[in-house]
Simulated scan of single mutants.
Amino acid sequence: MKLQPIKIGDLEVKVPIIQGGMGVGISRYNLAGHVALAGGVGIISTAQIGYDEDDYEKNPLEANLRAIGKHIRKAREIANGGVVGVNIMVATQSYEEYVKASVEAGADLIVCGAGLPIELPKLVEGSKTKIAPIVSSIKSAFVICKMWDRKYQKAPDLVVIEGPKAGGHLGFTNEQLETITDEEYDNEIKGIIETVKEYAVKYAKKIPIIVAGGIFNKADVKKCMDLGADGIQVASRFVTTKECDASDAFKQAYINAKKEDIIIVKSPVGMPGRAINNDFIKKSLLGNTKIERCYNCIKGCKKTNIPYCISNALISAVKGNVDNGLVFCGANAYKCEKMETVQEIFDDLSDY
């Protein structure tokens, strides 16, 4: 079977594959643009997106906000009319400014996780930008849909269900990550779908459901579709593409990784995260590294009581200094054994 086209409001998506937002700097204009060109939804991560701007060290917020517009424009030059969106963490400092900058730059879609995006409908009001929350539980889906309905008379344009096998920061406790079974989470996915359906009926609209987390091959795609999904979100597999914005060394870290190298780490921002074990992670467990300055990237992160600066760790990794940086990944990243192209991945996954 083939994945069928979907509509996100008035946006036509030929192949319902959303490329997950990966920061810092893993999914910027080149990857997102080529995913959109292939018929999917290309997503630019706004997390410290301006890390390589000339004034980033002095004015990180200004550099990031300017870079959002630059990367959306450059992605559109590649996308040939395809759908280009952004991923913005609710936990981001100056979150509202990131949303407004994305709307102003003409993002087709804003995907928000790492918190409940309760105010998102207000921030995009009057624009054509579509909005999609990332949820990991029936409870979070219900809270978001209920609040959007009550406060703004609005339902999501799309919902991403991100499971426990996803990469980077995760919406689960360590205990949940250790104990939850595939069968239990399959039931959670079904419950989320039913919750969202209630609001789709109320607003007489189709709300596509996208399942994410650990999706790597045709069997994974089939399972998601059998559960009732309208499409999939894939991230880790797009890292080892020639179009990915990360350095070759970062991509090679995925190719070199073994299953046992992928571990859960404690992030300075207070969430568990999934990453490739390396010298940096081992050193961080021994005690605090020297933190020269704070980039004010995440709410609740305090310079005085964190083991390392997550911005510096992620920037080091994306630039290629992987042994001294944090390499976030999904649970199945070890299955990346070769370099591919974006189109090759679409050809493989779209016909499951």
Rank of each mutant, 00 (worst) to 15 (best):
154 K>C: 11
124 V>A: 05
84 V>T: 04
24 V>M: 02
56 Y>V: 12
267 S>H: 05
247 S>I: 11
171 G>L: 02
245 D>S: 10
350 S>I: 01
326 L>I: 06
283 K>A: 15
43 I>D: 01
178 E>C: 10
280 F>V: 03
25 G>S: 09
288 N>P: 13
268 P>C: 12
7 K>N: 15
336 C>S: 15
85 G>E: 07
36 A>W: 10
334 Y>T: 04
108 D>I: 01
215 I>W: 00
138 I>A: 04
311 S>E: 14
98 Y>E: 11
209 I>L: 07
215 I>K: 00
194 E>K: 15
270 G>S: 04
287 G>N: 10
256 N>Q: 14
344 E>C: 06
267 S>F: 03
82 G>E: 11
312 N>H: 13
228 G>R: 00
119 E>Q: 14
3 L>Y: 10
194 E>N: 14
56 Y>K: 12
274 R>V: 06
246 A>G: 01
193 I>D: 09
133 P>L: 07
200 A>N: 01
28 R>N: 13
265 V>L: 06
204 A>C: 10
160 V>F: 09
39 G>Q: 07
318 V>D: 08
254 Y>A: 03
333 A>T: 01
300 G>E: 01
69 G>P: 03
248 D>T: 13
30 N>D: 09
109 L>M: 03
113 G>S: 13
237 R>D: 00
8 I>P: 08
222 K>A: 15
272 P>Y: 00
291 I>M: 07
11 L>N: 08
234 V>D: 08
232 I>C: 10
124 V>L: 09
254 Y>I: 03
84 V>R: 04
71 H>E: 15
38 A>Q: 04
289 T>G: 12
293 R>N: 12
62 E>P: 00
282 K>N: 14
183 E>M: 11
168 G>S: 06
154 K>H: 10
264 I>S: 02
249 A>W: 02
50 G>H: 11
278 N>A: 09
161 I>C: 10
344 E>P: 04
66 R>Y: 13
24 V>I: 15
273 G>M: 00
245 D>R: 03
167 G>D: 02
56 Y>D: 06
122 K>D: 14
303 K>G: 09
157 D>F: 11
329 C>S: 14
154 K>V: 12
67 A>C: 14
89 M>A: 15
72 I>H: 03
346 F>P: 03
193 I>A: 09
212 A>N: 12
309 C>G: 10
103 V>G: 05
171 G>P: 02
73 R>H: 14
307 P>A: 08
264 I>Q: 04
132 A>Y: 08
221 V>T: 04
129 T>E: 06
133 P>Q: 07
34 H>D: 04
243 E>Q: 13
208 P>Q: 09
44 I>P: 10
112 C>V: 11
315 I>F: 03
323 D>F: 02
229 A>H: 09
74 K>E: 15
229 A>C: 08
323 D>A: 07
105 A>R: 14
251 K>L: 11
31 L>H: 07
